[in-house]
Design a protein around this nucleic acid. Structure first.
Ligand SMILES: [Mn+2]
Ligand SMILES: [Mn+2]
Ligand SMILES: [Zn+2]
Ligand SMILES: [Zn+2]
Lengths: 177, 177
DNA sequence: TTACCACCTGGGAATAACTACCAACTAAAA
DNA sequence: TTTTAGTTGGTAGTTATTCCCAGGTGGTAA
């Protein structure tokens, strides 16, 4: 289904380079110091394509910064979300996942392996697009979560429809580069 | 804002009675024993109108069954979800909430007080309504989470747009009946 | 009505995922 | 450089949930 343009490898490579280049400026803009830890974390996040959890970012960053602490990773990822440099994705009821791609998009979640995929869903963006209010409520944002069974999991046959138990780690099909 | 019909008090009273009446049959159908604990929990869930967390259900059930254990509440709520008698609602990143109303509807979440409100959103239901597949993915369900600021929180002025810290308890505006 | 037992329950221990705290450190302004 | 406000690494604490298992009980077969 040749996905939308922003999902292509090409696009991702350029996007990552651009964001990395601008990172220092963004930090200064927010009055935040440009520390090696922050740089390492944003790099790990930008090069991830799998919506990693904090502990996964930790593991990856540790290859270059064996001394970094898990606390710093949690703290920094939260800061990135606050300053708009990352998105927190909290699907189902497992640990939070982080997304370095801050262009507007929605997520597809496989209830079998719990992998998260990007999806463009223009219909969804149009959903409450024009409205500022919904009765007494001021609209802030509207998130769409599509629960699916991916090809891999469908072939394995289990997972009729129900929601999976928590804390089941996703299948690690291969080591990341 | 006179919401949709299924949100009316009237509707809720009848719905609750009907569901409570059918509960025993549903259990037997699934090969589950009709224990006093299960009955108490489904009753608490059906009469709740606030999408309570497991610990809140526990507190309410304990008024009639001072001996029930928290484990049983967690376990039973999960079972209800599995057998389709309850819905698990996991917005933001706080503890799971349970919903005894299993008619299709979506949720509005106030990022200020973290209260959850029901909402009918026919546009959303139509979103992927007709499709069975999305590329390699088999569609299971599509959830829409609308993040808002409720009237109460808007008046208090805080909460520009960001996501609130976790584990902040919702305001208990009044004791429930 | 009773006996049986597969299924259930209570309570405490364990775990996962954060979060708080604080002394030591360091980016960056002066 | 010097200064210091902002940052970091450990470690302890918390919350929400799950695990474990000995003892209890609903449902049914006799
Ligand atoms: Mn994404
Ligand atoms: Mn609801
Ligand atoms: Zn899958
Ligand atoms: Zn509110």
């Amino acid at each position: 289904m040749g996905g939308p343009a922003f999902l292509s490898k090409q696009w991702h490579v350029r996007y990552r380079a651009q964001r990395a280049a601008e990172f220092g400026a963004y930090c200064r803009e927010q009055g935040l110091a440009v520390t090696p830890q922050r740089v390492a974390i944003i790099r790990a996040l930008l090069s991830a394509e799998d919506h990693p959890r904090a502990d996964q970012i930790y593991a990856r960053v540790r290859r270059q910064h064996p001394h970094i602490s898990l606390t710093t990773v949690y703290r920094t990822l939260e800061q990135f979300c606050e300053m708009g440099q990352a998105r927190k994705v909290t699907l189902l009821h497992e640990g939070a996942r982080y997304d370095g791609n801050i262009t507007p998009h929605h997520h597809v979640l496989c209830v079998g392996c719990q992998r998260v995929f990007d999806i463009a869903l223009p219909e969804a963006d149009r959903l409450l697009h024009d409205r500022e209010r919904l009765g007494e409520f001021v609209l802030l944002r509207c998130l769409v979560e599509v629960q699916v069974l991916c090809g891999q999991c469908r072939r394995k046959g289990q997972n009729s429809t129900g929601v999976r138990p928590r804390r089941q780690r996703p299948v690690q099909s291969a080591a990341q580069s």
